[in-house]
Design a binder for these strands. Structure first.
Lengths: 207, 207
DNA sequence: TCTTTTTTAGCACAGATGTCTCACGAATGC
DNA sequence: GCATTCGTGAGACATCTGTGCTAAAAAAGA
């Protein structure tokens, strides 16, 4: 039989090349040739693992989305498994740790956030990406929703808050912060975004 | 002398064609040929008014940005000129009206927001757009900052709030809401965004 | 009417892109 | 050793892009 190359590994390797190109030069530059060169492969090799460019892009999008949400889900399970802290500051800290996985706070998360943003915007007019975008929306909604639930279940939350409404507001804030930090890193530093998130969470808890 | 065509009008007409193409098919499809076809002009005509594609794009970006901020500034001056309402609800309403100009609440504002978003993201890797993006950032920062000032100057605001911090949080929320409403209009309806904004403003005012 | 200058239109070139096809290479099982 | 099968690479084609250059058309002044 022929040469053995783990196809799944190869596909992820190509996806990583897509990420680097998008991060450096934007999604518009993520042509098959540029991606192949970045991956150190020939054009024919890339096309051997992906029939279309569309298939490659959707795959890369899904990998990027999963990478972000899996990270957040890991932290989330820690939060949900342990007993809820009775202390407000401790609860805030635990929730912030989960949500911070969605923000571009370091190089790795920033790279993911950039790629994520470009794909989401592209999915608006690229019909081959709409399904992946829907799944992404559901995933972030689930993560943020579960964090809000933890906040609300504690007796520390400001009374009268509506969970769905606060989830909506929190998702908006996270998306906006992420966007600003990605587009204007000089004006929106990581510590600033981190602080803004925590201030917002603090405003949801009764003093 | 020759045929009279107001050059500035023509440039804005072409810019409008850019907006329609971007709105329908994304910035990547805004080639000179597509834009010319959308404007009902020949390729050579478009190139007569813009030397480069880069020049056309920067012009369109600036027109889009100005259009949004001028609308908000109009409402803002009304707010600043009149006496501050002593009533919390009235103050909230006046501030909301200004900030709502930055959200895609109707077809016109949605079109502007889409174009704005695409250009901002493109400016990350397109060096010919970074200056325009900087100016845009300053403009929104000024509008939101002045609204926050109005809120803080009233005696109705929650004590202890830091204006700069609240402006940062508010800008983040606005950007995030805008992004969500643009990308997922089915899940983020105008009334919802409007309500979320007002809820946030309400949380800044003491009950 | 003729001239001048703007506006419009078109052709042509080099470069890039997605896709198709085919040939070479390499590793595994017989 | 050899054939089979996957992996790799390269060439070619049609299409689209920005841009440079040239020529026609149109309108206003003389």
């Amino acid at each position: 039989m022929p040469k053995i190359v783990n196809a799944d590994d190869r596909r992820e390797l190509v996806a990583d090349a897509v990420f680097r190109v998008v991060r450096e030069s934007g999604l518009a530059q993520a042509s098959l040739r540029n991606v192949a060169a970045e991956a150190g492969l020939a054009l024919g090799s890339v096309r051997h693992y992906f029939d279309n460019q569309a298939e490659l892009m959707e795959f890369a999008f899904r990998v990027s989305s999963e990478r972000i949400h899996l990270r957040a889900l890991e932290k989330l399970e820690v939060l949900e498994d342990e007993a809820l802290p009775a202390d407000g500051e401790a609860l805030l800290e635990k929730c912030a740790v989960v949500l911070e996985e969605l923000l571009p706070l370091d190089a790795a998360r920033s790279a993911d956030a950039v790629v994520h943003m470009e794909f989401m915007l592209d999915a608006r007019t690229n019909t081959t990406l709409v399904d992946a975008a829907q799944d992404d929306y559901r995933a972030t909604g689930a993560v943020v929703g579960r964090v809000v639930m933890q906040l609300m279940e504690s007796s520390l939350a400001v009374p009268g808050l509506v969970p769905v409404d606060e989830a909506e507001r929190l998702i908006g804030l996270l998306d906006g912060l992420s966007l600003r930090m990605v587009l204007q890193p000089a004006w929106a530093a990581p510590e600033q975004g981190q602080a803004t998130l925590r201030r917002h969470l603090a405003s949801l808890l009764a003093a």
